[in-house]
């Protein structure tokens, strides 16, 4: 019996659905964390990063 015989009988065509569920869950986790109200300050600082070429927006010791 070769590897391809084993794989052929493993029913891999459902992998796509399994992956879809995994990815959906990952997406929801990210969406929840991104839209947590507590992070507004952090994101406001981050969004200003391109506008200042000189001063770090989240330097050493800045916990936000």
């Amino acid at each position: 019996m070769r590897l391809s015989d084993i794989m052929a009988h493993a029913g891999l065509s459902t992998y796509a659905e399994v992956a879809l569920v995994i990815f959906l869950v990952a997406f929801l986790l990210i969406a929840v964390s991104v839209f947590a109200p507590s992070r507004k300050q952090e994101f406001d600082a981050a969004s200003r990063m391109p506008l200042d070429d000189v001063h770090p927006q989240s330097p050493r010791g800045d916990a936000s």
Binding site: L3, S4, A8, L12, S13, A16, A19, I22
Partner: peptide
């Protein structure tokens, strides 16, 4: 990981299901 997992989920069946 996101890229590789997605690729493998997609590629493996095409390569290994003989039918």
């Amino acid at each position: 990981v996101a890229v590789i997992v997605a690729s493998l989920f997609e590629i493996i069946p095409t390569f290994l299901i003989k039918s």
